[in-house]
Every structure is written in structure tokens, then in C-alpha cells.
């Protein structure tokens, strides 16, 4: 019994950590840079499918199946998602902020369409199975299998966290935040905001692709249904709950929201008759939507919030000399 619970705990944690990776990717885009991505599901799907194509054994009737090692799949997934993010970013980042949002929304729709219809590549609605799983040789022992996968994901998230924290503190991260807080001032310092934003958007997209790959290999099976718009929502809810701009918050938010989501889904399937389950599930989604709006209204900084050093700096400027000019400069209209 305890072992079962432990195995389930490991399974839960592993899933939650794949979301934590997506959330970290989103944090680079939104939290650090203020870029709004409504197509997270699309980037995750790209990573998942790319990795599946690279690592699955050759299959009759489907292109791909190169049988490469899992690590190559992860890398490939991140790379392809990063390239797509770069292209979309190059197209829209210089335009109004909402154009990027609309374009990423389009990416999610287009990716969904492609995975459904490019059957020769993606297996269509049936998806791709037999994706190699890490530690597959332990599959006979659920506990050992679960724990080793959880361990792997913990290591990946920890590495990613350290790398991102390093980035945040680097000059590059400071420029990003400066741009987010006050584009004109950053420009005056000779930094090209478009280039920095594009880099951040690409890195974020690649991390989402990595998350998609990691998740696909953990589950061993992918289908278009896994990458519906609801996924985008979940990741947003995770980041907002955890506090945008804060990497620890992103991880915490992912585990927390995934926990709420998984337990409410379990509650739905336990307490509702099968014919009522679809309805109950839609209420579950209503909750996420309303919750997102409530957090935006009531606690826009999230649970942990962000250490804001840039704004303090700007305030100092404003106090010192030209308060009116500085303020006119920063006023949001």
C-alpha cells in the first residue's frame, strides 16, 4: 500500500515536473521579458513530436522513426521548438505586444492541425506510440521505475533552474528586465530590445519543446488530444499562481496547480456518474478560467512574486532629478 502510494507519488511528481519545465520556459518569455505566448501547447507538441520521430523505432506507413537515443530526441525537440519560436518571434516581436499573442495562438492552431492531418509523419488522430521511456528496463518494478524517472526529472529541473537563475543574474538577464520595465530607457542605454526579446522568446520556446519531449518519453505515447488549448491555460495558471518572474515560483506553481488539477480530476471521476463526467470536467475548466482572472485582479504578482530591483532603480532616478519628465516617460498611456 505504502509502496503503491510512493509509486503514485513518483508518477505525480514526474508529471508535475514536466509542467514545471514548461512553466520555466514561459517564465523566460513572460516573467523575465513580458512576451505573451498563447500557443504554449503548440510549442510543447512540436517538442514532443520531434523527439518521438527521432527516437521511435522505424514504423511501417510512417515517416521517421530514426531510433536515436532519448537524449538526442530531447535535444532535437528543444531545437525544433526553438527554431519555430525564433521564426514567430522574428515576425512579430517588433510589432504590437498583442500581435505576438495572436500569432502564437495561430501557431497552436496550426500545430494542432498538422499533427492531426500529417498522418504520414504524426500518426494523425491515433498519435505515436512506443516512444522509448527512460529506465524502461525497470518497467517491471513500478516503484523503481517511478523513482528513477522522478529522479531524472528532478535533476533536469534542478539543472534548468540553476542555468536560468544564472541567466537572470547575468548582464543579459538584467537587460531583459530593464527592457520589460522601461523599453525606452533600455534603448537609450544602447540595447536593442528586439534582439534581446527574440533571444528570450527562442530560449523559452526551446524549453517548452524540451518539456514536451520529456513528457512524451515519460508517458510513452502522444496524440493530438494532449495538446489542446487547455494545456496552454494550465501552464499559464501555474506561472501566475507561482508568481511570474520568479523561477522558484514557476516550479512551485506547476506542482501546486497540477496537484489541484489532478485531484479535482480524480474527484470528478469518483463522484460523478460517467454520463455526467464531461459536464463536471467543463466546470473544472471554468474554475481555471475564473481562477486566472481572479489572480490577475487580486494578486497580480502571484504567490511568491518577484524581487524587483529594476523598478527601485528607476525610482531612484525619478527622485533625483527630472521627476516630471521621468514620470511622463513612464506613464502608461
Amino acid at each position: 500500500m505504502i509502496l503503491d502510494l510512493l509509486a503514485y507519488g513518483a508518477f505525480f511528481l514526474t508529471m508535475a515536473l514536466t509542467y514545471a519545465i514548461m512553466c520555466l520556459g514561459l517564465n523566460v518569455q513572460w516573467g523575465q521579458t513580458g512576451l505573451f505566448n498563447v500557443g504554449i501547447a503548440g510549442f510543447v507538441a512540436i517538442g514532443a513530436y520531434a523527439s518521438a520521430l527521432l527516437t521511435t523505432p522505424e514504423t511501417a506507413g510512417r515517416i521517421g522513426g530514426f531510433g536515436l537515443p532519448i537524449a538526442a530526441g530531447w535535444f532535437g525537440g528543444a531545437l525544433v521548438a526553438g527554431v519555430v519560436a525564433y521564426l514567430i518571434g522574428a515576425l512579430t516581436i517588433r510589432l504590437r505586444a498583442d500581435y505576438l499573442a495572436i500569432a502564437t495562438f495561430g501557431v497552436a492552431v496550426a500545430v494542432q492541425l498538422c499533427v492531426l492531418n500529417l498522418e504520414a509523419l504524426t500518426g494523425g488522430a491515433f498519435g505515436i506510440g512506443f516512444i522509448p521511456r527512460p529506465f524502461a528496463e525497470l518497467a517491471g518494478n513500478p516503484l523503481a521505475f517511478g523513482l528513477s524517472n522522478a529522479g531524472l526529472l528532478i535533476a533536469v529541473v534542478a539543472l534548468l533552474y540553476m542555468a536560468l537563475e544564472h541567466l537572470v543574474r547575468s548582464p543579459w538577464g538584467r537587460v531583459l528586465r530593464a527592457i520589460r520595465e522601461d523599453e525606452a530607457a533600455a534603448q537609450a542605454l544602447g540595447k536593442n530590445p528586439t534582439r534581446f526579446r527574440l533571444q528570450a522568446f527562442t530560449i523559452g520556446g526551446a524549453i517548452m519543446g524540451l518539456a514536451g519531449a520529456a513528457q512524451a518519453h515519460f508517458i510513452g505515447f502522444i496524440a493530438p488530444d494532449n495538446y489542446m488549448p487547455i494545456l496552454t491555460f494550465q501552464v499559464w495558471a501555474m506561472l501566475i499562481v507561482g508568481g511570474s518572474g520568479n523561477n522558484r515560483g514557476a516550479i512551485l506553481g506547476a506542482v501546486l496547480v497540477w496537484g489541484i488539477w489532478a485531484s479535482s480530476a480524480a474527484a470528478v471521476s469518483t463522484f460523478f456518474a460517467p454520463e455526467q463526467q464531461a459536464r463536471a470536467a467543463s466546470l473544472q475548466i471554468v474554475m481555471i478560467g475564473v481562477g486566472l482572472c481572479l489572480i490577475l485582479l487580486l494578486r497580480p504578482r502571484g504567490i511568491l512574486g518577484e524581487v524587483r530591483n529594476v523598478s527601485r532603480h528607476i525610482r531612484k532616478i525619478m527622485k533625483s532629478d527630472d521627476a516630471e519628465l521621468a514620470s511622463r516617460f513612464l506613464s502608461k498611456d
Binding site: D321, A323, E324, S327, R328
Partner: peptide, 8 residues
């Protein structure tokens, strides 16, 4: 002078 707050 500039920034004296006249406009505001």
C-alpha cells in the same frame, strides 16, 4: 525650469 511640474 524644465520638469518643474507646470505641465502636470
Amino acid at each position: 525650469p524644465n520638469g518643474a511640474g507646470k505641465s502636470t
